[in-house]
Design a protein around this nucleic acid. Structure first.
Lengths: 414, 414
DNA sequence: CCGTCGCGCAGAAACGTATCGGCTCATCAA
DNA sequence: TTGATGAGCCGATACGTTTCTGCGCGACGG
């Protein structure tokens, strides 16, 4: 009743809007300025405000600037939640890295992830997207609480349940690292591991290595598998018997032991390549234990993004997988997939609706949209070159040069 | 079939919904299974489904499990966007680091940020929130496109426009590093820089330093200011004339030059503390140029989180600011502020509404809510201890121990 | 002088959920 | 028999946008 009195006092012009709302909601809620308030203040409709601020519709510049000035004066900020609900786009991209150990969250453990995440974030922001880091396990309720436009998965496991659930929801997924064949990702980015290993072994051979050993992992991930296969292939080609030790890569102690085993073999190699980041220091320590001088008695290369190897004694030659370029490329692929998918969906919905109205067939829209998506984007893929950073550990004479090494990459998708 | 029958039995009740919808919208859009579909399939209402899945309302366990099984069977996933719009909570936290240089995005440039971000992400996930990394400039449209429950700001500038805009929108902000007095943040976390510097200088003096120099910055940020003041105060107390060089910290070259200047002075120090991460290697290089042995002729400490200083020649004593603990604490404070704020707002809205109905006063709800918020949370703050990792560079004899050093911190708010 | 066209704008229907209040029964005491 | 009680469930509304559809009207060609 009282509210009724007060309500009658108000002018009819603004009252129309009041009616559509919940009556007394106006004064009980917090005074967030919405698009309605801007419309009322500017004396135009909600549609006009929305069009003016988003640069859509047909409006004269006078109306546009007027609405903009009113919106600025009121300090209007559109609700991201409402926009997301309406448009179906959140502007948010997920980044998840599958962890092998028991640790819930180990990114930046190795420099690779830190640099990759940094580049991915930067690339996403440049295209207007934010990037959220999410856990690899679908247990966390976070996955269902945030609206994602797409997701980057680093090193997806063979039958990753997270990826499966995401594609089931129609969320594009792009992976860093070749996915297993049955993972229906929208694309992937990976290094040319075979070319990298071959180039690196050639470099060691050119430095005088006669028998090159490998420190590898027992895991079945594609990085380990492809690298090891390339090593075995190279050995077969040059006629050198393979000399390698494998260990569980996630075990922090096993690496040092494996390095020791490798140098304790009767057929001790005179050069070693270590597939994982800590192998360099482990091999240096093992060499010291056996009284081997680097590089005189043992040439050394390991795959790492860490710059500690620039200051070790001696500095160690490293193979860089260029995580920065990978992170950037992954984001480009993902956003392309997101925006192409949205465009296709919009077009498909339009077709579906008019067709449905005329013919009454039900499933046209749905299967049409899916067919369009798969037809237009048959899993984009990009192969990125690696970089061999040559330091003292891999050549008899000390000089520090950088050799960029790449094979002709396959054409980047359709 | 059965469900169809049951559905017809209900007749008017649920049918009205169909009418109110767009009629053919049902078949033209993508077939996202919403809460409506679950309700129809389970033969219950939307309310019941929502209550059953969220564990609210008064429902027998039979209904709960039935609804859950139907939802599982249909593969129902609630729309995060809709939930966010309705509840006003997105489950998303922003993390932004103000960059000084021209680089748009430089986190993980120093190990501090990498570790801090890692810990923050982990802590956020543990409490059900995701963390998105956002640019420091409000120019990017990302800020208005994602719905944030709160934001962590690392090293906020004096009159940070981003922070101002966020608090204007009522979004809680917690800062890593003491904010300038006029920044109305909900809380902050910082190290006890004064205690850290004093403890470190005492350590150097105990190692035999007679004249300790400082490599500091020209910036006005609180870290630089507090550390430098602590140094000057310590010098005054022990009666040592201050010996320091300041340089613009964001300039990558200036550091090496300043290190050189410091060691070229006529009153050359016999011990140096460098405030920034690269100072250690720069000082080592400068010492080598001047033929100074470390630690015999020059004791060395720098503030860094990088583990390269464990393997330099000699290893360098570092002061760790414990970014992991800081990142975790910042998130705890922020989420507490978010959830307390939400609870207060809910309570305030309830009071405001009933009071408004009875008395008819208008502004009670609004000012009451604001007063509640400021009264309940008067800017929480936490002071975290630092850790001095003692290595060969700061003591005549080689041993590697860890000295944890902290003052009695002020009671943590409230 | 009239039909048509296109510009400028408005109404209203979604998007998918949470939640307040209230409705309908069965049970039970008076 | 009946009013009270409470368990179990439902209708309707609001969250704040975007966008489809279409209306009024001035101008212009015939």
């Amino acid at each position: 009743m009282l509210s009724g009195r007060a309500y009658d006092q108000v002018d009819m012009t603004a009252a129309k809007h009041q009616v559509s709302r919940g009556d007394d909601t106006r004064r009980s809620r917090r005074p967030r300025t919405g698009i309605r308030d801007v419309a009322a203040e500017a004396g135009v409709s909600i549609t006009t405000v929305s069009d003016a601020l988003n640069g859509k519709g047909r409006l004269p510049d006078t109306t546009r600037s007027h609405v903009r000035s009113v919106a600025d004066r009121l300090g209007y900020r559109p609700s991201a939640a409402a926009r997301t609900l309406r448009t179906g786009r959140s502007g948010l991209i997920g980044l998840t890295v599958t962890t092998y150990g028991e640790e819930p969250f180990t990114f930046t453990e190795f420099a690779y992830f830190a640099e990759m995440a940094r580049a991915a974030t930067s690339a996403a922001l440049a295209r207007g997207y934010a990037l959220a880091i999410l856990p690899a396990t679908s247990q966390h309720d976070v996955w269902s609480n945030v609206a994602l436009d797409g997701t980057v998965v680093v090193d997806p496991a063979d039958h990753d349940p997270v990826v499966a659930e995401l594609v089931r929801q129609g969320i594009p997924v792009v992976s860093d690292g070749r996915p297993a064949s049955d993972l229906p990702v929208a694309g992937w980015v990976d290094n040319d591991h075979e070319a990298a290993v071959i180039g690196l072994l050639d470099h060691l051979a050119a430095s005088g290595a006669r028998r090159i050993g490998l420190l590898t992992g027992t895991g079945t991930d594609t990085y380990t598998r492809l690298s090891t296969e390339a090593y075995l292939g190279w050995c077969a080609r040059v006629g050198q018997p393979p000399v390698y030790e494998a260990y569980p890569a996630h075990d922090p102690c096993a690496g040092a032991l494996a390095a020791d085993r490798l140098l304790a073999r009767p057929d001790r190699p005179d050069a070693v390549y270590g597939l994982y980041d800590p192998n360099g220091t482990d091999l240096l320590a093992a060499a010291r234990r056996y009284g081997l001088r680097v590089p005189e008695d043992l040439l050394l290369v390991c795959c790492s993004e860490s710059d500690v190897y620039a200051t070790t004694e001696p500095p160690v030659t490293t193979l860089s997988l260029q995580p920065g370029r990978i992170g950037s490329a992954v984001i480009q692929l993902l956003i392309d997939a997101i925006e192409d998918g949205a465009a296709a969906r919009a077009a498909g919905a339009g077709r579906g609706r008019s067709a449905g109205r005329r013919t009454g067939t039900r499933h046209t829209g749905h299967t049409g949209a899916l067919a369009t998506q798969t037809a237009v984007r048959p899993a984009q893929q990009r192969v990125m070159p690696t970089e061999l950073i040559v330091r003292a550990s891999s050549q008899p004479r000390v000089r520090s040069v950088t050799v960029s090494q790449q094979r002709t990459p396959p054409a980047a998708g359709g």
